[in-house]
């Protein structure tokens, strides 16, 4: 998030009224405030997810028991934005051989002004106007063999793009 362009402009018009006929008459004037909010999308990451292995050690996922999704918030000032989750390109940290024959996936659910349930990576979903809370899941699946012991890190990108 973060390409945000919010400009406020303040214009003040002062009006003075006078009357020689009735000096005690009430006078009033409007002070005008002008404001402009451009269409804006703000993505803020709240927490990192946790990957957990399944019983067969062929799946590392936030959806497995012991795993947890990451979370993020998105604030939009127009309905002219889409949400997209990139398919993970691979582990950014792993033990030797940890990425052999592995396929990756990501999914997202949304609450707030946007309602989404387990949308898979690559799909575009329209964002509502205002605050959306995202839960972001990631999965790595091994085609053959098991994940070797070690520490794994699987990055996922959440994108806000004009529709």
């Amino acid at each position: 998030m973060l390409l945000r362009r919010v400009f406020y402009s303040l214009g003040v018009a002062a009006c003075v009224f006078s009357s020689t006929e009735n000096a005690s008459a009430q006078t009033s004037g409007d002070v005008i405030f002008n404001g402009l909010i451009l269409d804006t999308c703000v993505v803020a990451i709240v927490s990192t997810g946790t990957l957990a292995a399944d019983a067969t050690y062929t799946s590392l996922s936030s959806e497995n028991a012991g795993g947890a999704r990451g979370s993020a918030t998105v604030v939009t000032t127009s309905v002219d934005f889409d949400l997209q989750i990139d398919s993970p390109v691979g582990f950014s940290a792993m033990p030797a051989g940890g990425d052999t024959g592995v396929t990756y996936g990501a999914l997202v659910s949304a609450t707030g002004v946007t309602s989404l349930v387990d949308i898979v990576d690559g799909a575009l979903s329209a964002l509502g106007l205002g605050l959306t809370t995202l839960s972001v899941g990631a999965t790595a699946t091994r085609g053959a063999g098991v994940f070797p012991a070690g520490s794994y890190q699987l990055p996922v990108t959440v994108r806000c793009v004009p529709s």
Binding site: M1, L2, L3, C41, V43, I45, G49, Q153, R159, C160
Partner: peptide, 24 residues
């Protein structure tokens, strides 16, 4: 598309998430 991307949060194990906002 001009996309501004934040760094990944957190280091170590897990599934870090990063945000990206694009203008068209």
């Amino acid at each position: 598309l001009v996309c501004v991307t934040s760094q990944f949060f957190a280091t170590g194990a897990g599934s870090p998430v990063r945000g990206e906002v694009c203008g068209k």
